[in-house]
Design a protein around this nucleic acid. Structure first.
Lengths: 87, 87
DNA sequence: GTGTAGACTCATGTCGACA
DNA sequence: ATGTCGACATGAGTCTACA
């Protein structure tokens, strides 16, 4: 599997998560509680060092009160912006 | 991490992938080639036995010529239908 | 409240092969 | 062309603990 642009994608997810979480006034601890995930793991995602699977993405979208499609749409937007910045 | 509804989600992804792939007239082999993934692995996803990470989902969405948001929106729709069927 | 570390279990993703 | 298997390396996700 090619691995080149994974980091950009993880960064896009990290940013979107952090922004949305703060919009809701939640701490990482709160978010972890909402989706029944490990708190340090949430932190690792938000610093773009871990890459969740589909089920985790879904539970994050629920906890962030966004439909999965909208959540991923926002991630993709940030991703494309990030890629475009490299020119 | 709770694991209860992961299977429903994997099934929703499996169905959406298979339908969309055939809409494009692609074989699993073609699809694997487009997103540079293992062909048997594609098969495992389509029988709901593997759960991809974000970067794989993204590459699948590219290969299936759908924005990530739309792709995940469709998956979620199928997922909610599948869950609703259990009542 | 957040980032990071180590150690751990188990799943992802790859590869070769076979029905 | 698809599903499945075994074996493998790497990474996801948990837990405890500390700055």
């Amino acid at each position: 599997m090619r691995q080149s642009t994974n980091y950009e994608l993880m960064t896009a997810l990290a940013l979107e998560m952090k922004v949305r979480r703060k919009e809701l006034g939640l701490s990482q601890e709160d978010l972890a509680g909402r989706c029944d995930l490990d708190r340090p793991y949430i932190s690792l995602i938000e610093v773009a060092r871990k890459q969740p699977t589909l089920s985790v993405l879904y539970r994050l979208s629920e906890a962030l009160e966004l439909p999965l499609g909208s959540f991923m749409e926002r991630v993709q937007e940030r991703y494309l912006q990030g890629v475009a910045r490299n020119f």
